[in-house]
């Protein structure tokens, strides 16, 4: 199963830092998402893009995780050569993860 089936996601940018939320559609799946989508997996998913650390914050009250990814945006919106300078599309890559 893809993470896309049980969660939705949004990416935000500040300087060279990207954050991605992963939000369970159904609170019942929050635990499973928490077990499966670790900071290490997210770091691996974005190897070659995210150069710094990935830190995960948990928000059980809304069934969500927030991943903060450092050195993630090619130097930041203003100087990045990337097509997607804000990293807006990163959330879609994360939802492509396989979940057991």
């Amino acid at each position: 199963m893809k993470l896309h089936e049980i969660a939705h996601s949004r990416t935000g940018d500040k300087g060279n830092i990207s954050n991605i939320s992963v939000i369970a559609y159904d609170m019942e799946n929050y635990h499973q998402i928490k077990q499966s989508v670790t900071a290490e997996r997210v770091k691996h998913c974005f190897s070659g893009i995210v150069e710094g650390d990935v830190v995960r914050y948990e928000l059980p009250s809304i069934g969500a995780l927030n991943f903060v990814m450092y050195q993630a945006l090619g130097g930041g919106v203003t100087r990045s050569l990337a097509l997607d300078i804000h990293g807006k599309s990163l959330s879609s890559a994360l939802l492509d993860l396989d979940i057991e």
Partner: peptide
């Protein structure tokens, strides 16, 4: 609720 949850975490680092 889903649109609000996405926006709550938009451009947020430490939620607390």
């Amino acid at each position: 609720e889903a649109t609000c949850k996405e926006q709550l975490l938009y451009e947020i680092h430490r939620p607390d």
